[in-house]
Structure formats: structure tokens, C-alpha cells
Design a protein around this nucleic acid. Structure first.
Lengths: 218, 218
DNA sequence: CGAAATGCAAGAGCACTGCTCTCTTTCGGC
DNA sequence: GCCGAAAGAGAGCAGTGCTCTTGCATTTCG
């Protein structure tokens, strides 16, 4: 069982998500294909196991990185999260693609199992921003955001996550969140072009600075 | 031949990229599978045709949108590009996923055919920023960017694309580019969560404003 | 201690996939 | 009318996900 996930991860890293074959996993396990169906209901369920596994690993990496930084250094904590996401994504591109790339066709990750681990990263980000806000370290206006229905949506989000930070910070946070994964995806998926940068980390650090500034932690 | 691409697009939209089957396309075409191989060398080549097709369609959509806006309204031109990308992505999620999502396993888009159409969107963005810069409409410092090797990379990019705008604008432009696709991907791939926003366009417009501001066109 | 019940893996089989090969039909130019 | 090129048909190979039945252990119960 544990072995199935382990070998599945190897295949995922080697051949990618859509090429994940239960038969091949069974072969590597030295067992016939029907035998693994005793432990895993379907290929999709194996995919779900790998999704959860990936979210957990990313979450652990982010947790470890953020805890190494002083709790009062809000900007640096945010940078640590960004760097951890990027480093993990570059180390595990196939798993990253499974989590944040195009959905695998015909496969829908069951929400009850994946939303928990899936929100760990954004949860950490929100934690940092909220900390900065209550410490008075932010520099964003606390005026409510423009369209009223959007303000209502943001109010609901604030309530759900227990945030006291104002609309502008929540909205900017979502942008920074999406932008962070946009940058990482561009780099992992090679959208920038092959040899554009001598060291891609340079431009990432610059972007990270801009995102820190965008949420008022400059 | 044209029919193959046409039906391929239908299947792409219906079942997704990895489920694209040459046999199914042949069936819909009322022809046996081997007959399709007279026109398309492999499944990967069909995928490449669809990639080029998708880039072209997105490029056309962006071109049409940006040309409807006055050439001097730089911020509004940038917004038009962003809106066009989002609208097209939501209308053609499968093709969008093929272009900007996880790479299809075992398939590498041949650069010589795809880089041309693939750079149309970013080319338009660069055009807008460069226009704004030469018109003196930007509000970004023109100090060179921090690490020297990054400055060299950016200088090479400027030369390649014929840009006169300073490092800071080029770097911020790349961030805005990645952030734009990050936002769109989050929305198309459902990373935000299912029913977070009453109208997702609200938050997108807000993010668009922030990106316009980030490149100094606020 | 022997028998029954249970757990687990094997193997065959179905329908599908990409792709290659050979055979046959069809159609246009001379 | 004929001949060659073009294009579809069909069989076949190796792979896939998944189901079902069979057989072999081990464990539990009478």
C-alpha cells in the first residue's frame, strides 16, 4: 500500500501524471496488475493519493521554511514561503504540475480529501499577512473595496478564515498568491523560454520583492 | 486535413488534451484510424497543430481587443489585453490548459512552430509598455536592476525585442505577465475554490488594476 | 485437530489506445 | 482505356484501465 504510493511517485516524477499506469506500478512492484486493485480502487484514486501526498510535502516544506524566520519579520517570512514554493516546485516538477497545472482529463480531485492539505500554503500566507496587519506593519489603506458584491465576498472570506485585515489586503493577498504561482509555473513549465536567464533565481527574487511590496510589506 | 484539426478541437474541448485520441477523431470523421495517419504523422503532431491553432486564436482575440482601444490609453490597452486573455481562457479552458497548463507527458512542443504564435500575447504587452515609456507615461525609476548578471540578461532581452524601456519596467512587465496568467490559471483551473466569488470578474478587475499600477501605468 | 471462512494474488478477458504494415479501391492525367 | 499516384480499409502488435473467476494460503472456529 505504502509501496504503491512510493512507486507511483517515482513514475509520476519520471513520466508525468497522465502517463501514470497502474500496470507499470504493478510491474515495478513485482505483482500482477489486478493485485493492486485490491488496495487502490482505480487509477484516479492513486492520483488522489499522490495529490494529497504532494500537498503534504509542499506544506511541510513551506512550514519548515517559514518557521526558520523570526515571527516579526513579516516580509522575510513571506519571502521564505515564496522561495520554499519555488524550490519545491523545481525539485518536484511533475508533482507540482499535478497539483497546479492543467487538471488531468476525466479526473476531479475529491474535495473532502484534497482541500485540507491543499490550503496549507495559502493558509500560511494569510497567517503572515494577518500577523503583519495586527502588528501595524502594513501600509495598505483599509477602505472597503469597490464593487459592493465583491466586498461581500471578501467579508465572507475574512469570516471563514478568521482574518481581521482589511479588504485591500485580502484582495492584494489573493493577487500575490496567484502571482507567486504564476511565476513559479512559468519557470517550471518553461514559459519564459529556455535560456533566458543566467540564474532564474535573480528574477524570482526581484518579483518576490515586488509582491511583498504589493501587499504593503515593502 | 482541416477537418482533422476541427474535430480535434472539439475533442480537446470535450475531453481534454491527454484524452485526445486519434482513433476517436477518425471515428468522428467516418474514417478508419490508419487513414488519419496519411495526414498527421502522430498524435503529438496533432497536438502541435492544436497548440498552434490555440496560440493563433488567443493572439487574434488579444489583437482584436487591444486594437479597439485608443493607442494613447496605455493602461486601458493593458487592461484590454488582460480581459481578452481571461475571456478566451474561460471560453476555451481545454485549449488554455494545453497551452499554459502542465505539459502533456512525453510531448514537447516543437519550438520552431510554436514560439512564433506563442509570443504574440507577451509581444502585445511589451508593445503597450514600450509605447507608454516613450510617451513618458510611466512612473517607474530607470535605475538599473540589482544583480549585475540579471541586468545583463535584461539587457539581452531588451535588445532582442527592441525595447528602450528601463530594467525596472522590463522586470515588472515580466511579473505582470506571469501574474496575469497566474490569475487566469487559478480561475480556469479552479484553484480559488468553487463558489468563492459571486462574479469572479470583480476580483480580476481589481487585480488588473494592481498589475497596471505595478508596471507604473497607474 | 480438522474444517470452514477469509484474504490475497494470479490469470484470462473486454474494450480501448497509438502506430505500422499490406492490400485494395478510386481517381486524374495522358 | 490505361497507368500511376493517392487515399482509405483492415489486420495486427503492444500497451492501457478495469472486471471477473479461480486457486492458493492463512487464519479462525467448532
Amino acid at each position: 500500500m505504502r509501496d504503491i504510493v512510493r512507486i507511483g511517485r517515482v513514475h509520476l516524477a519520471t513520466d508525468g501524471a497522465a502517463a501514470l499506469s497502474l500496470r507499470a506500478v504493478a510491474r515495478d512492484l513485482g505483482v500482477v496488475s489486478s493485485a493492486v486493485y485490491r488496495y487502490v480502487a482505480s487509477r484516479d484514486e492513486l492520483l488522489t493519493l499522490l495529490v494529497v501526498d504532494g500537498y503534504d510535502e509542499l506544506g511541510d516544506a513551506v512550514d519548515a521554511a517559514v518557521e526558520r524566520v523570526d515571527r516579526d519579520s513579516h516580509a522575510e517570512r513571506m519571502r521564505a514561503i515564496g522561495r520554499a514554493v519555488r524550490a519545491w516546485a523545481l525539485a518536484e516538477p511533475a508533482t507540482y504540475a499535478l497539483l497546479f497545472g492543467s487538471p488531468v482529463p476525466g479526473y476531479e480531485a475529491p474535495a473532502e480529501q484534497t482541500t485540507g492539505p491543499g490550503t496549507r500554503v495559502v493558509g500560511r500566507l494569510v497567517e503572515v499577512w494577518e500577523d503583519a496587519w495586527v502588528a501595524g506593519a502594513g501600509s495598505l489603506p483599509d477602505a472597503p473595496v469597490a464593487p459592493r458584491r465583491l466586498a461581500r465576498d471578501l467579508a465572507r472570506i475574512r469570516k471563514q478564515m478568521g482574518i481581521t485585515a482589511p479588504d485591500a489586503l485580502v484582495a492584494r493577498g489573493m493577487l500575490a498568491w496567484a502571482a507567486l504561482f504564476g511565476c513559479v509555473s512559468f519557470e517550471v513549465f518553461g514559459q519564459y523560454g529556455a535560456s533566458t536567464f543566467t540564474d532564474p533565481k535573480d528574477i524570482f527574487e526581484l518579483h518576490l520583492d515586488a509582491l511583498v511590496e504589493a501587499v504593503g510589506l515593502g
